[in-house]
């Protein structure tokens, strides 16, 4: 059948959501459907938040099925609309009153928030079925919009290429260097880790300069490398050679890094407020879960550095946990109704 995948995008930004959309389209095509991706720019600031939502309402989408993904792409109108929700506009929901939100307690913010909740609920209720990327996203939808949904897990990018390897002398993470990913927290943790353990922090973002300054001030330049964006080949080898992966975003929706680490047979060190990551990382079984402090993260890195057998056992268990992930069942569910 002809399927249009709908996604919103902030121009010049590329991360997990964009990879997710691309891979979904590829999986649909591989399953014999004719799939295409339609993306519309969006702006996250409060004043322009609903502009893109309105634009989606006006789009003529000629297809047998429409799969909407992130806010506000699910405002698209189609008689056969299925939503696979990556996330809503979190600054108006669970991130309100944090540094990542421009929704305050003023009258305008509260009314904008009320209206957004009303619109979101209406647009999502139009869908024949609502899936989410994780239990966490489903629980937010239940909590804020009173809607039931079904988590639908899918394999991360490079799933077929990631492989096990030696448990070397470093931990790694590949993520956008943005506030919600907390790269500074990861780098700071190395202050509490003994040499020769190293950290590789791949990725780029707005915190690039701040991260480099931190490494200088903490005299960690020789122990934390920041190669920027790395190629797929390099990323696969980066995971393969680490003794653990450290990943501590705030309330992550899903978190490809976790699944990629597991696929490479590596345990993941994370924090108790990392959201969807905790659906996979079981403390002491597939990784370590700590407080969100540099000291606690550093201690966890140190403990696995000193006990590679434990890291190997956790890594093996982690690899088993993701062994059954595949796109086939995901596609079947999405096109079923």
């Amino acid at each position: 059948m002809d399927i249009v995948v709908c996604g919103a995008q902030v121009p010049f930004m590329r991360g997990g959501a964009e990879l997710h959309m691309d891979n979904l389209v590829a999986a649909l095509n591989a399953a014999g459907h004719r799939a295409d991706l339609v993306k519309i720019p969006t702006a996250w600031d409060r004043e322009r938040l609903l502009d893109s939502a309105l634009a989606w309402r006006l789009l003529p989408i000629d297809a047998d099925l429409v799969i909407a993904t992130n806010f506000p792409s699910y405002f698209v109108q189609h008689p056969r609309k299925v939503v696979w929700l990556f996330h809503q506009h979190r600054p108006a929901y669970d991130l309100v009153d944090t540094t990542w939100s421009d929704f305050g307690s003023d009258d305008a913010s509260l009314e904008a928030q009320r209206l957004l909740v009303d619109w979101d609920t209406t647009a999502l209720e139009e869908a024949r079925q609502v899936f989410t990327t994780s239990k966490l996203v489903a629980s937010r939808l239940e909590r804020f919009n009173g809607m039931a949904s079904e988590p639908l897990y899918h394999p991360p990018p490079l799933f077929d290429r990631l492989h096990e390897g030696p448990f070397g002398d470093y931990v790694c993470c590949a993520t956008r260097l943005e506030g919600n990913k907390r790269p500074l927290l990861l780098a700071n943790a190395m202050h509490y880790v003994e040499p020769p353990t190293q950290m590789v922090l791949a990725g780029k973002g707005h915190l690039d300069a701040e991260l480099r300054a931190l490494l200088v001030s903490r005299e960690l330049e020789d122990r934390v490398s920041t190669p920027g964006f790395v190629s797929d080949d390099d990323l696969v080898e980066l995971f393969a050679g680490a003794f653990a992966v450290v990943y501590a975003p705030i309330e992550e929706d899903y978190g490809y890094v976790t699944l990629q680490a597991f696929r490479a047979g590596k345990p993941v060190i994370t924090t108790e407020d990392s959201g969807g990551v905790l659906e996979w990382v079981e403390d002491g079984v597939t990784g370590l879960v700590t407080e969100n402090s540099p000291e606690a993260l550093g201690a966890a890195i140190e403990s696995l550095s000193n006990d590679r057998d434990l890291a190997r056992r956790m890594g093996a268990e982690a690899r088993d946990r993701v062994a059954t992930l595949s796109w086939g069942p995901v596609v079947d569910k999405l096109v079923a109704r």
Binding site: L110, Q113, R114, V117, D118
Partner: peptide
């Protein structure tokens, strides 16, 4: 009258 969801009610009370 428009519906005010519980979590926004809570924010209004705070305000």
């Amino acid at each position: 009258h428009a519906c005010v969801p519980p979590f926004i009610r809570a924010r209004w009370r705070l305000r």
